[in-house]
Design a protein around this nucleic acid. Structure first.
Lengths: 214, 214
DNA sequence: TAGATTGTTAATCGATTAACAATC
DNA sequence: TAGATTGTTAATCGATTAACAATC
């Protein structure tokens, strides 16, 4: 993968996981090649947009042929960094934490949830689907000893900022935050992805009340 | 709220829940008025963008004063349609379904999860946090009898499309889909919001590997 | 009134679309 | 070779930013 290290817009970044999933489904269907026009039609994009998107990263097609589905899939995986394994822990062993641990798609995409952490003494020492639950006291120690690079926060917002600061001084590289307030921490090298489920539900409500086809 | 019924871009729609949340926090802090410049600075937007956004819906400020926080909050709620109550059911009483039922923010924003549905006979007849779990056999009947307008799908993708088709012939107005394949159904009047949690995680991975500040 | 800040028009910037020579 | 389809440049469209008269 050639990353020309030009600026990549958010619009492009948002489409990358969609390409990845779609190409995966094409592979499942046994489709080995596809043109930008056909791929775009299936995904609701123009042929130009598809080609422009991939040319940000070098362009993976061949004139007169189109794109090899499997090769393109691998390239997109590489661009997304999901050709590498990521070790992750989840803080908060509630229902959401349990749902994420048990969800099979993540491990398929290289995200390995290896431990849970919680403050509840009744949970510490137990496990969810074979993934152990540890005490919050051992968090930093565990992260460093096990080369954890992503921490998932499924804890209430009041606790999230405090835990965020604790994570600031660890060697993790990303936080996937489900707390209902956007997280900001002092370490600028740690990337934060805030997931606001209620934003998604509010957008659904908006569209239900202001019917625009998309 | 004046909706001029012009086309509203997706970029604007995505900002509306953020405004709503931010204004809510300002209210909690006892702040009663704010200028577009200050609101923008706090949210990482320009003053122009803030004013343009609100002027799509009529403009709620006053020259020389700015915006009344509480009034603006109510206006945004009205635009989003969350000044009205929405009755919802969740299909799939697993961990994710349980997490959503128990999450207090949704009821605060007018989304009332009144029932769960599942195929597992061990779960049918029990409840989660007081919300009953019913058999899938009674789904359509329940929806019509209780004026349900949103259905949440927390079931595997293989089952989601079948359930989606069943929902096509009901009077619901929206589907909030957590299954890992984008849902399409035959009834064009039902709005679908697909939540792809793994897309979010892949974007985090992308940013961890291609460090761009945002 | 003077100062502040809006609503709105105009200018700019960036993303998407169109066009086409290059080439498989 | 002829046909297909890319990579890439140019044109267009739309979103964001700037500017400023209106006005509280």
């Amino acid at each position: 993968m050639v990353n020309r290290s030009e600026y990549i817009s958010d619009a492009v970044i948002r489409r990358l996981p969609r390409y990845y999933r779609h190409l995966g489904e094409l592979m499942n269907q046994g489709i080995t090649r596809i043109s930008s026009g056909e791929l775009g039609a299936q995904m609701g994009l123009t042929a130009s947009q598809v080609r422009q998107d991939f040319n940000h990263f070098g362009g993976f097609g061949q004139q007169g042929y189109g794109y090899n589905v499997k090769d393109l899939y691998k390239e997109v995986a590489s661009i997304l960094g999901i050709d590498q394994m990521h070790k992750a822990v989840i803080i908060g062993a509630g229902h959401l934490g349990a749902a994420l641990v048990k969800y099979p798609n993540f491990i398929k995409r290289g995200f390995d949830f290896v431990a849970l952490f919680d403050v509840n003494p009744d949970l510490i020492g137990t496990d969810i689907g074979g993934v152990p639950i540890y005490s919050m006291d051992t968090l930093e120690e565990y992260i460093e000893a096990n080369n954890i690079d992503i921490v998932v926060l499924t804890i209430p917002k009041v606790e999230a900022s405090l835990v965020g600061e604790r994570l600031s001084s660890t060697s993790i590289r990303g936080i996937w935050n489900f707390a209902s307030r956007d997280l900001k921490i002092s370490n600028p090298n740690i990337i934060i992805e805030n997931v606001q489920l209620s934003d998604s539900l509010m957008r659904l409500s908006y569209r239900m009340h202001n019917d625009q086809r998309d």
